[in-house]
Design a protein around this nucleic acid. Structure first.
Length: 637
RNA sequence: GCACCCGUAGCUCAAAGGAUAGAGCAGCUGACUUCUAAUCAGCAGGCUGAAGGUUCGAGUCCUUCCGGGUGCGCCA
């Protein structure tokens, strides 16, 4: 469909070139929401009318008359709605083209995209807020791959920050554990979840304890025993826990980039030379920030401290260096070591500061960078984009994308439901932000467990003859679909006020609905094959279909043809949710069609072949779409 | 104070400046002896927070106001 639209636009521009001055006129095609307005609608007359100060309706009529009969793909052109030029496609030709081209992959783009997502502090289990991040990032990466980009997924591990020191202090001085005892803990991340919340409560009211925490942080930075070893162990174990959690929902990484390596390899020193040399980073003129090096943030006219008066580097400073590296603009590289291998054989590498054999593929060197980070970090992300441009890298500045999304929050009712305390004044709030620090969040593993449990009950109720292992496997696939769909179905700037009932929904606008449609469709195609009713990829001419069915058939065909366009739209407009909506709409259309027209029982072989041919095309397109959403299609449901 | 986001059906959300603002959930009717009812068909539910403006056309863009949220630290 995308190629067809481009082709038509070129032809139309050529045909009208003599009569109209199209230079600078912005116009395009849209799919009218009702088929009576045609298959493609052009707003050309409106755009032209604005420029020529003429009546859109008259212009549209003239244009339509000039184009009539000139375009091979078009059956008819009509003018409606005061100036819309509506095109009706030649349906049989379109059907044949769709069936012919359905397995053509998109050509490689020759560009590398780096997607950073997840990036959870390695000091506690992941929660639902992190799941939104990872699901969005994962679908984003899959879309880029689908569109022909080389994709590298990075997960940034802040293993040196104060939050890790928090739990190290807690383990060592509050729970009085030593390294050996800590290594014995089976589910460290979940245990630290509670510890992290508890120590933060303690620190809040006690300056002496807070000082102890800073002391622990300093010992970690100085690599002092046993703090440093405990820190390393904690960060590694928690990271493995995160990897396990995300793997459960089908999310994988290529590279774990550690902040400790950014520091150890002096990345900032290289960045600082550039920043100072170009005058982007300056000593602060503010007496309160005496001795600090700052960058002026133009958008809000404030200064951001990059180097503190004690010469230590702030988080932004490290992040600037790291992002320069992503674009290969730093002149330095990490070392790399294999870290983990997924069951499917996919390896994950970890950065390292110690020299190591070169990995089989080069990391970094991105042409475009997506940082999937919630909207609350916009200020810092915008600052980084500004700095890239100021350092003389406008291309990098333009290709540095903060893939920003709103937070996941809990409703006060949800907080109470979990047996947690509400603070003063929170009862009347619409929602309360999730916080690992306060221990106020739904743990990712807990939510997945609830989904698995509910899913298993549903599976057993419907498939009593299924073995326990099979049922469990099926239940998990359904749970993952429900979770992933829920996490991406909202617009990015919609705050998700988390609700157990909605997250656990398997009906209607949900992941399992999509799976169910595909399972049903596959079942029909399986039975068709068994009954020697060959489903032909080239099923004939749809013009032989009777009226109402023809319209439904066409509706599905037309929308199926939009897959590539939809993925490009989702990427360009940062609306992953539009893909979920697209998938849902397609499956709704299929279910509707299914209930009206029999496939296997149809006696007329011509009709049957047409219907089965549509199912083949549907399976082809929607299977690709569900891969993008990370939703598996089970054998049965 | 400065910057950003949101306000649409009872609830949760869609709507790519376009044609009659759509879904799901909840409610009510109906459809399994027929390709899987995790489905489908139907009913009901709306002055898109308010007022101005721009436009052939505004839920969408601009201005102001009202109501909510977030960010702005020598934390990360």
């Amino acid at each position: 469909m995308k190629r067809l639209q481009e082709k038509l636009k070129t032809k139309i521009s050529a045909l009208l070139g003599d009569a109209y001055d199209l230079a600078g006129v912005e116009w395009g095609f849209a799919l009218p929401n009702e088929r009576k307005f045609g298959d493609l609608s052009a707003t050309l007359a409106f755009a032209l009318a604005k420029k020529a100060k003429a009546k859109p309706f008259l212009l549209a009529n003239d244009i339509a008359a000039r184009l009539q009969g000139q375009l091979d793909e078009i059956e008819e052109i009509r003018v409606a709605g005061g100036g819309f030029i509506n095109f009706f496609l030649r349906r049989d030709a379109f059907l044949q083209a769709q069936q012919r081209d359905r397995d053509q992959p998109l050509p490689p783009r020759g560009e590398k995209v780096i997607v950073e997502h997840t990036s959870i502090n390695p000091n506690k289990s992941a929660h639902i807020g992190h799941l939104r991040n990872s699901c969005l990032g994962d679908v984003l990466a899959r879309c880029c791959r689908f569109l022909g980009y080389e994709v590298e997924v990075q997960n940034y591990i802040d293993d040196t920050g104060i939050q890790v020191a928090d739990v190290v202090w807690g383990l060592l001085h509050y729970w009085k554990m030593d390294l050996a005892a800590i290594k014995e803990v089976p589910d460290l991340a979940a245990m630290l979840w509670d510890l992290y919340a508890e120590v933060n409560r303690l620190f809040a009211g006690d300056e002496a304890l807070a000082a102890q925490r800073r002391e622990v942080h300093k010992k970690i930075e100085d690599k002092a025993a046993p703090e440093y070893e405990i820190c390393l162990h904690v960060a590694q174990q928690v990271l493995l826990d995160h990897i396990r959690t995300m793997e459960r929902v089908g999310i994988q990484y290529d590279l774990m980039a550690r902040e400790s390596d950014v520091i150890a390899l002096d990345f900032f020193k290289a960045a600082a030379a550039e920043l100072t040399g170009s005058g982007v980073m300056l000593p602060s003129a503010d007496p309160e920030k005496k001795g600090c090096l700052v960058i002026h943030y133009e958008r809000e006219k404030i200064e951001k401290i990059i180097v503190r008066s004690n010469d230590t580097i702030t988080y932004v400073g490290k992040d600037i260096a790291y992002n320069l590296w992503k674009f290969d603009l730093l002149g330095r590289d990490f070392h790399y070591r294999p870290f983990h291998t997924y069951p499917d054989g996919h390896p994950v590498y970890m950065t390292s500061s110690a020299p190591a054999p070169a990995p089989p593929r080069a990391f970094g060197r991105g042409d475009r960078v997506y940082n999937v980070i919630d909207v609350r970090q916009s200020y810092l992300q915008n600052l980084i984009a500004q700095v890239l441009t100021q350092l003389g890298h406008p291309a990098a500045g333009a290709n540095f994308v903060h893939f920003s999304y709103e937070m996941v929050a809990l409703t006060p009712a949800c907080v109470r439901e979990m047996g947690l305390q509400l603070e003063a004044g929170e009862e009347s709030k619409p929602y309360i932000e999730v916080s690992g620090r306060k221990g106020r969040a739904v743990k990712a593993d807990d939510l997945i467990a609830m989904l698995n449990e509910k899913s298993l009950r549903e599976v057993q109720a419907r498939n009593s003859e299924l073995g326990a292992d099979e049922a469990l496997k099926l239940a998990r696939a359904i749970a993952v679909a429900a979770l992933r769909y829920f996490m991406v179905k909202f617009n990015l700037n919609t705050v998700i006020a988390f609700d157990f009932r909605e997250a656990l929904n398997f009906e209607g606008d949900s992941g399992p609905y999509l799976q169910y449609a595909m399972v049903r469709l596959n079942s029909i195609l399986r039975k068709a094959a068994a009954a020697d009713l060959e489903a032909a990829a080239n099923a004939g001419a749809m013009s032989v279909l009777p009226g109402p069915e023809k319209e439904l058939y066409w509706e599905m065909l037309l929308h199926l043809s939009l897959l590539e366009t939809q993925v490009e739209y989702a990427l360009q407009n940062h609306e992953i949710s539009s893909l979920a909506a697209y998938a849902y709409g397609l499956c709704q259309k299929f279910n509707h069609y299914y209930h009206l027209f029999p496939m296997l029982a149809e006696k007329d072989p011509v009709l049957r072949a047409l219907r089965l041919g549509l199912l083949l095309l549907f399976r082809n397109k929607v299977a690709k779409l569900l891969v993008l959403l990370g939703i598996d299609i089970p054998e049965r449901m």
